[in-house]
């Protein structure tokens, strides 16, 4: 499904280009859930942005394919149409753009790119209501501007709502659990679990074992300083929780 090979990316700063991703290789077969854990600043969000196509980051090497298609060649909106979705660590506020109109535009843009017919207003409303209910989001929120004045947890839920509505095949969740209360965490996790299927893959970025108790990963990777330094089963997350990063980072060095 998603194949990342020796991916390198850098960002332009005042002191010149700084390499952040230093050769990441990762295969997530269809139907699997992988988790990435790693210390602050290790490059987790950068990886998610590079996958989604943010042009602030320059890809300096490697490749990424989604079902054989070269993702790196595509514009962000084309990646969305190809089935890529990123739930942002920091969802962006968009004043003046109303949630329901945003969702409608988003879904129909993707459908249009795929050559599918646009959803009519009624089907859209139905879909929105169903998904809102499943995720415990009030209808009132759909009348507000995108993420504006949403609490931290509401923003994260809103990311999952969009994911559920767009029904992508490859989902990256960047710290979707941080800022969520325990109940919200369960709701969000069950939302993700409901989407799990043999033709979808997930990459879940998190700092905490807790989310992985609800969404059982098939594989756990540890990212440090722009590289994957260890890969293992779900037990790796527990091990990390017990020992912290220092040991692993030391081991790799």
């Amino acid at each position: 499904m998603i194949k990342i090979k020796d991916l390198k990316a850098s960002v332009e700063t005042d002191d010149g280009a700084v390499e952040i991703l230093k050769g990441i290789s990762l295969d997530i077969p269809a139907g699997e859930v992988h988790a990435i854990m790693g210390p602050n600043g290790s490059g987790k969000s950068t990886l998610s942005y590079v996958l989604a196509g943010r042009d602030e980051y320059e890809v300096t090497g490697g490749s990424v394919t989604l079902d054989g298609e070269d993702l790196l060649e595509l514009a962000p909106e084309e990646r969305a149409a190809a089935g890529m979705f990123l739930a942002f660590q920091y969802p962006v506020e968009i004043p003046g753009v109303n949630m329901s109109m945003f969702l409608k535009t988003s879904i129909n843009s993707i459908r249009k790119q795929r050559g599918e017919e646009e959803l009519n207003a009624l089907s859209m409303l139905k879909l929105m209501k169903t998904k809102c209910r499943e995720l415990g989001i009030s209808d009132d929120m759909m009348k507000r501007a995108v993420n504006v004045g949403f609490s931290g947890g509401e923003k994260k839920r809103n990311e999952v709502l969009q994911m559920a509505m767009l029904d992508p095949k490859f989902c990256v969740l960047d710290e979707t659990d941080s800022g969520l209360d325990i109940d919200a965490l369960k709701i969000v996790a069950s939302g993700v679990n409901a989407m799990r299927s043999p033709d979808k893959s997930f990459l879940i970025i998190t700092h905490y074992q807790r989310l992985l108790d609800y969404i059982k990963p098939d594989v756990v990777h540890i990212l440090a300083d722009g590289k994957i330094i260890k890969t293992g089963g779900p037990e790796l997350a527990q091990e990390l929780e017990d020992k912290g990063y220092a040991e692993f980072v030391g081991e790799a060095a």
Partner: peptide, 10 residues
């Protein structure tokens, strides 16, 4: 970028 990542053209 946020909007584009949700499928909207530039």
């Amino acid at each position: 970028f946020y909007l584009r990542s949700r499928g909207l053209s530039e």
